[in-house]
Amino acid sequence: MSTTSRRRRPTALVVLAAATSLAMLGVAAPAFAHGWIGGSGSELVARQAMPGNGDIGLVQYEPQSLEAPGGFPETGPADGHLASAGIAQFSELDEQTATRWAKNEITPGPHRFGWTYTAPHNTDQWRYYITKNGWNPNEPLKRSSFELLQVVAHDHSAANTNPVHTITIPSDHSGYHVVLAVWEVWDTPNAFYNVVDVDISGSPGSADTQAPTAPTSVRSTATSSSSVGLAWTASTDDRGVTGYRVERATASGAFAQVAQVSGTSTLDAGLVASTAYRYRVAAVDAAGNVSPYSAVLSVTTAAGSGTGAVPAWNPSGAYAKGDRVSHGGVVYEAVLTHQGSGDPGWITARSLWKPVG
């Protein structure tokens, strides 16, 4: 297993200092940590919050506190300590037998994993893993027991802008399995680790052949000389919509996909000033059924001429890839989506901005 996630890590010393101070006071180091699976809209509950699990020690008072270094599986908690995130005060969670833990009863197919956030950090992504067929439930949880199940990408905004994730449990898994969810934070070097015990039985049911309804009310939320913000009204589906395909017309008039998102908005960047663009949106469900397309929306970008038509750089602003700003008489273009990253000259050295004029 591997990941290509890359996150800025400006606060490692701050995190270490806070953890050291808490330890000196006799408090669990991650007491300031902030999230667990089992929130509103969730079909499943993480081990530390699951009813019927008996004595689980101090973690019952801090279900949000399973925090450890990010970058799993290359880094993160040691094998045998994945459930506790390597925190000694929460070691009860690392007990592992086939019968130790109460289980969420589920069938194969899509299920909602909802998070409760006590502090919704800016977020890189969530990654979900599941134990492989043939894993030993009577041995401590280790990396080699898991395979990647699904990645939920995010735009580095607060985690609570995407609190519920539809994760598909594979039909070739049955019986007792463990799902490991890794919430990769963007504004610290850490991640949160939750394990969810599941008993997979039955079948996913009859094949899903019903497509979602078409998205409606596609509209522009903001335009600049180089970007168009889009939003639409959510589609409905008998088993749930998992995402939306956003398409833009090419010069030939044919439409091509420019984004696939889980929410009902997106930003299309890197565009040409004073140019008309045409968009349409379709919904997709877990079975891959695609809805009819929305009505086509035509949007014209703002005029641009030199740095005067480009907004001034805001040191605390949120920027999408392709956005342009002016600073010191130079126009910069965002190479990556980011927020509040300092002077553009400083950012350029870190491949977040590039000068374009």
Rank of each mutant, 00 (worst) to 15 (best):
W126D: 01
S294P: 10
T221H: 07
N160R: 00
A282K: 11
Y193E: 10
G240R: 00
P51M: 07
T20W: 13
G109F: 05
P163M: 03
A17K: 14
F32E: 00
S40Q: 12
A49T: 11
Q257W: 08
F255E: 04
I200R: 04
A159V: 03
D199L: 10
T307F: 03
S5M: 08
T337K: 04
K354T: 14
H81S: 15
S65E: 09
A153E: 13
F146C: 07
V272N: 12
H338G: 04
V258K: 00
L148V: 08
L180S: 04
P204S: 15
P73T: 09
I167S: 05
A249N: 12
G357H: 02
T301D: 06
P311S: 07
S21V: 13
S203K: 13
V299W: 07
D55L: 13
S91H: 13
A286D: 13
S42D: 07
E184D: 15
T307V: 11
W36K: 08
G41L: 00
A249D: 07
I106F: 14
H121R: 01
G308I: 06
L180K: 11
E147V: 11
H34W: 05
A17D: 05
R350E: 02
E92Y: 14
R219L: 06
T107C: 00
L352C: 01
P292R: 09
L271G: 02
H173Q: 01
S5Q: 13
V241S: 05
S298K: 10
S226R: 07
R324M: 10
N314C: 09
G329F: 13
Q260D: 11
R8H: 15
A191P: 00
K103P: 07
N53M: 04
V151W: 08
V330I: 15
N122L: 09
G253D: 06
I200A: 07
G86L: 03
S316Q: 14
T337L: 02
V290C: 09
G114F: 07
L267I: 08
N194D: 15
L149Y: 07
L149R: 08
A320E: 11
V335Q: 15
A259E: 13
A33D: 08
R6P: 10
G243N: 12
T266N: 05
P10N: 14
A254G: 10
Y332I: 06
S40H: 12
H121W: 02
T4K: 13
